[in-house]
């Protein structure tokens, strides 16, 4: 489970990084992103809304979130 730490990065870099990495995910692959911007946990699910085969769940830790994206295609 490869995890990318995007905490403290200047917006909109996190959302761009997430979308770029998610677009090249193969089926069954799973990626974790650590974000600390409340806007990121709103925009990531909305931006990836069109990729229905993606399963996104967000786990809250004390001062950041883990965005776990799994490609359930095929």
């Amino acid at each position: 489970m490869e995890s990318t730490d995007l905490r403290g990065k200047f917006c909109p870099f996190p959302i761009i990084e997430v979308v770029q990495r998610v677009e090249v995910m193969e089926s069954g692959e799973c990626k974790v992103f650590l974000v600390d911007d409340p806007l990121a946990i709103r925009s990531i699910p909305e931006e990836l809304e069109e990729f229905e085969y993606l399963d996104i769940n967000i786990k809250k830790n004390n001062d950041y979130w883990e965005v776990i994206i799994t490609n359930t295609e095929g």
Binding site: G8, F10, D36, P38, K60, N62, D63
Partner: peptide, 21 residues
């Protein structure tokens, strides 16, 4: 609002990002 969503966290910026900010 962020307190009600439990999204409020005091975050100190790293020194290296200050010039750009």
């Amino acid at each position: 609002s962020s307190a009600t969503n439990r999204e409020f966290t005091l975050r100190m910026p790293a020194a290296k990002v200050l010039p750009r900010a």
